[in-house]
Amino acid sequence: MTTQVETALRGPEAFAMARKALIDMEAAGVWPTPLNFELWLHYIGDPEGPLGKEMSRLLASSDPFTEGTSEMLAAEYLPRGRLSDEIRDVGAVLNRELSSMSDAIAHAKKSQAAYGVTLADASASIEKVAQPEDLREVVSGLSDATTRIQKENSALESRLDASTKEVARLREHLEQVRRDAMTDALTNLANRKAFDEELLRACEVADANKSTVCLAVLDIDHFKRFNDTWGHQTGDQVLRYVASVIGRVAKSPRVAARYGGEEFAIIFANESTAMVEVALNRIRQEIGARSLRRRSTNDDLGAVTISAGLAQRHPGESGSSLLDRADGALYVSKRNGRNLVTNAENVAEAA
């Protein structure tokens, strides 16, 4: 989903949007399939966006809103649809390229086999040569065959070189598609999918190496107030600012992600809880030290603060359990006045 729609669906208007989507779909005679429901949420959440305008046009035309129409809109305007199309397109080109390379290699093998037969025949003919003219004919035949095989080998080398470059280009394109699929479009941090995969991998590595993993969950304090007061565009500005600070502090090998809405997460491998607390407090202090201004009007937005919770993984603990404990520590920070960092171990000891 677009960031604007995603943010709206995490706010108080989410249920109203969902109800309106179902009512409008029923009025338009459109079945509430998961794909149609997602399209209508985009339509209602961002009616002036590209998808919203196209849906308005289609609905105004009174043409039937078929399954094919839905798939066309999803492929054109929904990020996942475009991603699937890109992967399919690259896969098709790659298959053609590999098929062409296979045909070229098969042809080269046949040419080499034929050349081998020519050499064998020449060898047998030389043994039977009685006159110089006969020898010249054999040598001429060998020369012609050698010239042909050299040309074919040269053509094969050129074809394989071109194919190798094309495959390398496709590989890089697929890698870019993979990076895009793992990146949050608004903040350029890792997205939820990338975070889930990286957390699983970090837990597996920790078990294999008997090493540690710490997880931190961060949340923007009173974020709803920014959206309600200044609108979603200003809310997006706040999200980008917070993400930029998190990204600077949580550089590789740390993994920073936008976990959802105004919530972020950071994975720390082989770092003590003391080191993690220092990093989180650095993020918290840097974010809170700056007074933001609204770009469109230069209005003073005031300072933004964040709350954070962290937990160190227990041996053999699942990623979901670790996330739950870090999330619990985050809510302790919220209950204790916000703009705080709380260690889950301290919460457990206090209990």
Results as ranks from 00 to 15, higher is better:
residue 133 E to L: 07
residue 226 F to A: 03
residue 141 G to K: 11
residue 114 A to Q: 06
residue 41 L to Q: 05
residue 55 M to L: 10
residue 63 D to Y: 05
residue 166 E to M: 13
residue 166 E to K: 15
residue 36 N to K: 02
residue 175 E to H: 12
residue 225 R to E: 14
residue 145 A to N: 07
residue 283 I to M: 12
residue 13 E to C: 10
residue 120 A to I: 02
residue 179 R to H: 14
residue 298 N to L: 13
residue 309 G to T: 09
residue 233 Q to N: 03
residue 250 A to E: 00
residue 317 E to P: 07
residue 78 L to V: 05
residue 346 N to K: 15
residue 22 L to W: 00
residue 172 E to Y: 01
residue 52 G to H: 07
residue 43 Y to C: 02
residue 38 E to A: 14
residue 28 A to C: 12
residue 348 A to V: 15
residue 285 Q to E: 13
residue 256 A to T: 09
residue 77 Y to R: 09
residue 82 R to E: 08
residue 107 H to S: 10
residue 7 T to A: 12
residue 24 D to E: 14
residue 43 Y to L: 06
residue 81 G to M: 01
residue 159 R to M: 14
residue 262 E to V: 06
residue 250 A to C: 14
residue 254 R to A: 12
residue 278 V to Y: 07
residue 123 S to I: 03
residue 228 D to M: 08
residue 32 P to V: 04
residue 302 G to C: 06
residue 263 E to Q: 10
residue 151 K to D: 06
residue 64 P to G: 03
residue 51 L to P: 01
residue 307 S to T: 04
residue 122 A to C: 04
residue 291 S to Y: 08
residue 281 N to P: 02
residue 89 D to L: 14
residue 268 F to C: 02
residue 118 T to D: 15
residue 305 T to F: 09
residue 40 W to L: 00
residue 123 S to L: 05
residue 272 S to V: 06
residue 302 G to A: 00
residue 198 E to Y: 00
residue 314 H to F: 08
residue 68 G to F: 03
residue 11 G to H: 11
residue 178 R to S: 11
residue 133 E to Y: 10
residue 171 R to N: 15
residue 19 R to L: 13
residue 327 D to C: 01
residue 115 Y to S: 13
residue 259 Y to D: 00
residue 151 K to Q: 10
residue 147 T to Y: 08
residue 90 V to A: 08
residue 16 A to K: 12
residue 237 Q to A: 05
residue 90 V to K: 00
residue 69 T to S: 09
residue 287 I to V: 15
residue 89 D to K: 12
residue 84 S to H: 14
residue 65 F to R: 11
residue 51 L to A: 04
residue 280 L to D: 01
residue 292 L to W: 01
